[in-house]
């Protein structure tokens, strides 16, 4: 098993004909993902990389049975694309787009309430269940099928940590990038719930960063609900307050946003904290050995 995506995922790609959409659609296909459709308004009826292209998400689902969408729509139009996918009732939406205005996401979240879709991202590397399906922009080769769930607010830091795991022979069930924005579609808690319920996942690696309180909420959940061990690293111990560190959500505005506060909360909840980002793999190995 794995969470969110597996060999039965039928992926459609919103923005498949754009340069990024096209590049990554190809990579996903090469990894073995079933890319069954693309959506680009005005290009319906054509084919791209062998996949049929539709004018709307609704049409694409009706024709191909797509059950997940990977989005590469530019920031100014991305919220519209997400709303369209929610309205079409697709179970999973993975939005890669960076730079979506926060108020657009406020509307998206409001619209998501009571709907059946789950949103991952935006501003994220996507999701991969190694050996089964890749719906994202991460490098497939650094992953190894296995039993560790990985959930992260970052892209390249996740590659770094996943490659540490893989080098040590520790495989992953699913790796989920929830994204670096202030209002992610799915939170750490949302994903931890799935990992806790997933039989294949034995332990979870959580990679957080400064800004917001997602890590504190995760700590609450770990304390009250998780029976599986969690290894955590929080990026940005050296970040100055009030400065946006690349990610829109990575800004310390109050004391809760500091790395030290998050580490304190996670540690108190029983998570094992990696002393530095180069030791997350080793820390995970030790935790697994103690099981």
């Amino acid at each position: 098993m794995s969470i969110l995506i597996d060999e039965n995922t039928r992926l459609l790609i919103q923005g498949i004909t754009g340069s990024e959409g096209s590049f990554h659609a190809q990579r996903c296909m090469e990894y073995g993902t079933k890319v069954v459709a693309g959506v680009t308004p005005s290009k319906g009826g054509s084919k791209h990389l062998g996949a049929p292209v539709f004018n709307s998400v609704e049409r694409a689902i009706a024709e191909t049975g797509a059950n997940a969408s990977l989005m590469f729509v530019p920031p100014a139009f991305a919220a519209d694309g997400i709303l369209e996918a929610i309205d079409a009732g697709i179970p999973l939406i993975v939005c890669i787009t960076e730079g979506i205005p926060v108020l657009d996401m406020v509307k998206v979240h409001r619209y998501l309430k009571g709907k059946t879709s789950r949103l991952i991202g935006p501003n994220c590397p996507g999701v991969i269940s190694p050996g089964k399906c890749k719906a994202g922009i991460m490098v497939g080769e650094i992953h190894l099928p296995g039993n560790i769930g990985v959930v992260s607010r970052s892209g390249t830091l996740t590659y770094e940590i996943v490659s540490q795991l893989t080098t040590l022979g520790i495989g992953q069930s699913t790796c989920v990038g929830i994204g670096g924005d202030a209002l992610p579609g799915s939170t750490f808690v949302d994903i931890l719930k799935l990992f806790q319920a997933d039989k294949e996942t034995k332990a979870v690696v959580l990679i957080g960063e400064i800004g917001g309180t997602l890590e504190q909420e995760a700590a609450e959940f770990i304390k009250s609900e998780m029976t599986k061990p969690v290894v955590a690293f929080i990026s940005g111990s050296t970040a100055p307050p009030g400065k946006r560190m690349g990610h829109a959500g990575a800004i310390i505005t109050g004391s809760a946003g500091k790395a030290s506060e998050k580490i304190k909360a996670l540690s108190a909840a029983g998570a094992v904290i990696a002393a530095n980002p180069a030791e997350v793999g080793l820390t995970t190995k030790k935790v697994l050995q103690s099981l």
Partner: peptide, 23 residues
């Protein structure tokens, strides 16, 4: 490349006893 990794590099520099001039 990447914001999370860039922060982590700065953290790691500090861990090794140095200090970054920038993110």
């Amino acid at each position: 490349n990447g914001a999370g990794l860039a922060m982590a590099v700065n953290d790691l520099i500090q861990y090794c006893g140095g200090s970054a001039a920038n993110f």
